[in-house]
Nucleic acid binder design. Structure first.
Lengths: 202, 202
DNA sequence: GGGAAACATTGCCCTTTGTGCAATTTTTAT
DNA sequence: ATAAAAATTGCACAAAGGGCAATGTTTCCC
């Protein structure tokens, strides 16, 4: 099928299993009350294998948040009449699902007292930004310069980041009724972000 | 003089000495060919003291880049007729001096092959962003909401970040003649950033 | 299908790291 | 001058990181 089908799939499965175990342990016990050994015994791998995938606990925990499914939207919808900015708006509103935001929210809380974890969470969000930019670029190709894609997506994610990384307390839509309340605080914040970026800050 | 004059000054001196030693060693030998012991013996402190200030080599190295002098601009210049956006533009153009950009450039190069270092460099840039936001906020106070400051500064730094963290290769103004070439690539990129943010991306 | 190459996982081992604790030294406060 | 506060240090020990070689799987090619 794809380039490295089975082998890569297994490798990714290992990585995900380790990340999930690390995330769960962190949520149950907090960051300080477990060691790498606990993670690998829960996931059923060796300590050495953990080190092959991650450089530390924090990296494993944060990587449970990875969002790399931006490109999958491309095929489902035409980009007719859309600009890069309106397209990234659409991507983001679709990709930051309730469960992703839930998980992000938990990580943010834990990060408040653990600066190193916060760094890695930020790192994953930057990876997300890269995936988003690649998705946009594949949609619009050479219509815009490489620099323009970086600049635009950078501004979008930069403006959203204070919410995503917990710098400001915009209540994320979590819990049962979240999807039924279209104008929650996060939605409102996003509206302001995109409106400012469209109209300019003057 | 200030609240904690001598004591804090000495503590900061220790921190800076350790950071400088770490930075220099990293530049001379690369990241992998020295240990914390080398840093502290060069700076004249103990391993335990290093651990009191930094959690790892990378944090020490990156912290040699710290830029926290945004507020000092405030007093020298009136903010009359300026918006938050034009003010941050002014701050940034003044604060990213040749030598800061030189140091950043070296860190970026080393970060290419060392993801963990890159995280910490990004972390320092985010700290810089926080200082900048605080400076702006002190200038404009309650004229704008807390969220607005976060959103605006986030968009500005987010758009600049691809250059600052080396995601795109805009040639930074380094070397002897740097200050004499007002329209270097970095300047040009900044002009585009601020023009887009003023006018909007449509 | 079979054998070789590529790669993921593992165990072993040893250096380096991170950190709690208590002692010491230096700065601040009264 | 004395006491309180805080920075630096030494010690000890658990944990982490990573090189190396061995083993088990997957892929590739004939």
């Amino acid at each position: 099928m794809s380039d490295e089908s089975l082998r890569l799939k297994k490798k990714n499965a290992t990585r995900r299993a380790l990340a999930e175990a690390a995330f769960d342990l962190a949520m149950e016990r907090g960051l300080d009350d477990f060691v790498v050994e606990d993670i690998v015994s829960m996931a059923g791998y060796s300590r050495r294998t953990f080190a092959n995938h991650f450089s530390c606990k924090e990296e494993a925990i944060a990587s449970a948040l990875t969002m790399n499914d931006f490109r999958e939207h491309d095929e489902a919808h035409s980009l007719e009449g859309l600009t890069p900015l309106t397209t990234i708006e659409m991507y983001i509103k679709r990709s930051f699902t309730i469960d992703k935001l839930q998980r992000l929210h938990e990580l943010i809380l834990l990060s408040k007292s653990h600066p190193t974890l916060k760094l890695y969470v930020t790192g994953v969000l930057k990876e997300t930004q890269d995936y988003a930019r690649q998705g946009i670029k594949e949609g619009f190709g050479d219509a815009y310069s490489e620099e323009y894609y970086h600049l635009l997506i950078g501004a979008v994610f930069g403006a959203l980041m204070p919410v995503l990384d917990g710098s400001i307390n915009v209540h994320l839509p979590i819990g049962d009724t979240a999807q039924d309340q279209p104008d929650n605080e996060f939605q409102k914040y996003m509206e302001i972000v995109f409106s400012k970026l469209k109209e300019g800050f003057k």
